[in-house]
Design a protein around this nucleic acid. Sequence first.
RNA 1: GGGGAGAUUCCAGAGUGGCCAAAUGGGACAGACUGUAAAUCUGUUGGCGAUUGCCUUCGGAGGUUCGAAUCCUCCUCUCCCCA
Length: 413
Amino acid sequence: MVFENVFDELKWRGFVEQVTDEDVLQKELSERKLTGYIGFDPTADSLHIGSMVPLMALHHLQRHGHRAIAILGGGTAMIGDPSGKTEMRKMLSREAIIANGEKIRRQIGIFVDFSDQKTRPLALDNADWLLKLRYIDFLRDIGRHFSVNRMLAAEAYKIRMETGLSFIEFNYQILQAYDFWVLFREYNCELQMGGNDQWGNILAGTELIRRKEGSDAYGLTFPLLTTAGGQKMGKTASGAIWLDAERTTPYDFYQYWVNVDDRDVIRFMKLFTLLSPSDIAAYEALSGAELRKAKKRLAYEVTAFVHGKPAAEEAEKASEALFGQGGEDTAVPETVLPQEEAEQGIPVSRLFAMSGLARSAGEARRLIRQGGLYIDGKRVDDETRMISTVDFGDEGTLLLRSGKKRYHRIRLQ
RNA sequence: GGGGAGAUUCCAGAGUGGCCAAAUGGGACAGACUGUAAAUCUGUUGGCGAUUGCCUUCGGAGGUUCGAAUCCUCCUCUCCCCA
């Protein structure tokens, strides 16, 4: 191990935005094993790459021999965190939250090895303790430790002070603080991490622990990632980049990483791969078009980590085939076209709409007029063109392309 | 509980009876240029058809009118002021 302790590694990799007490935490993490947690609210049935920063942080924590706890926010998801948000999220039913939670728990398993006997990490659901809270008891035990004045002054609520904040959301922070206290008491968990928008919530927890237990607990936040282009991470034409292969194919996942802005490559390598400082330094020396090597490595490493090596290799080969020379392009997303439909003939515009490369036949037609759609590498210049079985050739497939880099295959069946 | 303001297309935000599928900006997409990068310039940005057409959209439900995002009634939600 190149780094002596997780803290130094997290710091070097760019995970650290704010720390409750940097010197003390650094010292503690190098001298003994402690327990740290991060919460994930199951508000969707898959995590997206925005959650990879906290997930990788847990991974590093475990790699360095500490105990990682992942909290499924089955209880907090019932409330909804207002931190840093413009408006209230719609309320989810308990059933939806449970269903989401199961899927998300599996995804967390990619980053944290729950079977590891040495560090014995845990996946817990805060619904287990939050759902059975009794209101009056809770107010008397916990509520009295919170100052409304302070909460209202918090940066995270600023926007909401303009647009409105309902009481239910206002309680979110208290519940998260309560979580931390429960974990501290039951599992001796002394560290909570999270995105920088969680800073207020985390501090609320360390303070609650200090008040109730007279002990110190630590908090650490990660920077909120934006791309060099100023965009929120993980947004593309087709929406967010999900960890679920059903939602975002490994090929598209790989493509996202291979397409990152030059200015982001090194930063992302540190955050999202386990490559060593010396490896990364080598890539850092590259410039201009050479940086594409770094992007390929980044894409391969991250895809392999999330979807496994075979999937990463396939995605890599497919990318080579489409953008470079040679190689198998089997990993390109595919749609099946029934033989009968092809026999009757289908308008190109409809075919592109079917593939998802265009949102509607109308958009496809517009794109054709702008010269943005291609079939098997040839630009489509007639928007009324009909596609039928003869166009498919011997292989029975057509490779559709929208713009410069979005591919989709149609297979006859 | 009382008074006031408001809800518009992905977002912000115009529009206050026909010229509105709805200004402008952002975002997004496409083209040119490139390195599957960035920046820049140009174009596009509700659906279905296609030479002027039809359908759906301006919080929800009704109504007035030849005609409504625009007027009226009720409802839902949000914000502000007072309690």
